[in-house]
Design a protein around this nucleic acid. Sequence first.
DNA 1: CAGCATCCTCGGAGATACTG
DNA 2: CAGTATCTCCGAGGATGCTG
Lengths: 132, 132
Amino acid sequence: MATTTAGQRREQAKRDYDAFLAGCPTRELLSTLTDKWVALLIPALAGGPQRHSELARRIAGVSQKMLTQTLRTMERDGLLTRTVTTSVPARVDYQLTPLGHDLFPVMVAIKTWAETHMDRVFQARTQFDTRT
Amino acid sequence: MATTTAGQRREQAKRDYDAFLAGCPTRELLSTLTDKWVALLIPALAGGPQRHSELARRIAGVSQKMLTQTLRTMERDGLLTRTVTTSVPARVDYQLTPLGHDLFPVMVAIKTWAETHMDRVFQARTQFDTRT
DNA sequence: CAGCATCCTCGGAGATACTG
DNA sequence: CAGTATCTCCGAGGATGCTG
């Protein structure tokens, strides 16, 4: 029988992995998670499946290359699924997995934090730049 | 008299700023927040003031240049304060501001998420890489 | 100890053009 | 429409050496 609960396995993971350590694989995962486009894509996809072109329009300024590249990385890491509908023209839908959706609160928190505290940061910058 | 509450001002900010827009200044702030070293520095500083060398040791693998550079940006954005104690040798302490501390829950959430779900991501990668 | 200046390199990321 | 391939370039970021 299984003698470990999900909670215990999570505890185990937190003991084994430490992003403060240089060699830890979480360091590299952290690099993926702390990506501007990931922080925008997760909230953008939270409402449901989106097509490539829809995402490109929603997330203004992202190049086609970066969008495809970021989506591919996220798919590989199990954050979203890519569904191809063969037709002319082709149609591809991206949808968050439960794992990806689990990341939603965190990502939306960063995005919202930036939008909410932008003014305060501007104040701080002005003060910093005009210090004697 | 002031007719707007802090809550209303926050609402105002959320209406004015939208990180989905390319020209929005929050896009650039988001770039700063979604930085690997920021995600590690905030949790590292949460316990109290830390010296430059202490941080360098705690956050393994960070170069001296990147550490100074990241700390400077965070100082400019009002996330932390830099206190110099003139002595020989010099001593510099970094401490989170209330604004920076406000970011702590978010940053620690990302770091913890990575540490907690590393195994699941590994599984997803293996499955992705061995797909036919 | 903290941090600036300099040099150098590697790859992140845009632009463009082409395919299914 | 979605994606790949190629070329190019700029700058992030490491290494080293010097200063207060």
